[in-house]
Design a protein around this nucleic acid. Structure first.
Lengths: 136, 136
DNA sequence: TTGCCACTCATACTAAAGTACCAAAAACAC
DNA sequence: GTGTTTTTGGTACTTTAGTATGAGTGGCAA
């Protein structure tokens, strides 16, 4: 957010500078008004691409629908397990990284499968990504 | 590709029109050179965003690294199985949609796990997506 | 403080997944 | 056409995943 504000401020400054440049151009006999306009076009074209790229990354990679997670009644611990599942870990491995027993993981997984209306963990991963409750 | 050419042609025409406008502005006493520049800025900003969006869609959704698939020695049939796995189907279900026996699917999956250096199908899915041999 | 809920864990079971090894038909290259 | 790879499939086995059920703990709200 801070970065966005900064970028837009810079843009406005650039625009003002160009206005000033256009004044000089006018005073000095309007030698290269085309170059000024062309420059503005190129600069804003590139800035447009840059900003879009940034915002798309945020949307597609970071966007998690917390609303949906709540709707499905998925608890904090269950969600942690879901994340580990999507990384391809086994129940035993998940148990180790979360300092729990494998039984506990199995319980969480079983609950997750019900809440995500899935028969297998692979299907749960797919569904979770479709629902944007896991990063794609 | 045709669309891209069309868009860029339109852009050049727009730029030329703006050059013409700037001439008129100059002749008529340079009333609103700022407006002209501002317009160019906004137009090219939006066009930049638009074009970027189009190209990103193609890149992120359609891009499959066939080179990599060959490198890993994954055969056609094996790849078909991999796709089904990533959709969350069981071996039995995959066998049904591909009209094969479950034994055959197991063989393919086992080979896939070796080729993708994975211990489980969930890990294989993750790896395949990382390597861009499966759509994200 | 009582009751609900999330979290934890266990046992016992069934169902999938995955391994190892073998083998035969089909496709493909040389 | 012969050799190689792909594809198919089987048996027998081990491992992992998932279900069902019960139960204890701690937090939190009415």
């Amino acid at each position: 957010m801070k970065k966005t504000v900064f970028v837009f401020s810079a843009l406005i400054v650039a625009l003002l500078l160009l206005f000033k440049l256009s004044e000089y151009t006018y005073l000095s006999g309007n030698i290269s008004i085309e170059i000024a306009i062309g420059t503005v076009a190129i600069v804003f074209f590139i800035v447009g691409i840059y900003i879009n790229k940034k915002s798309l990354k945020k949307e597609k990679i970071d966007f998690i629908d917390h609303q949906k997670i709540e709707e499905l009644g998925i608890s904090k611990r269950e969600y942690e397990v879901l994340v580990q599942i999507s990384k391809g870990f086994s129940n035993k491995e998940i148990a180790d990284v979360l300092f729990l027993s494998e039984s506990t993981i199995k319980t969480h997984v079983s609950n997750l499968l019900v809440k995500l209306d899935s028969k297998r963990r692979t299907q749960a991963i797919q569904k979770a990504k479709d629902l944007h409750i896991l990063p794609v």
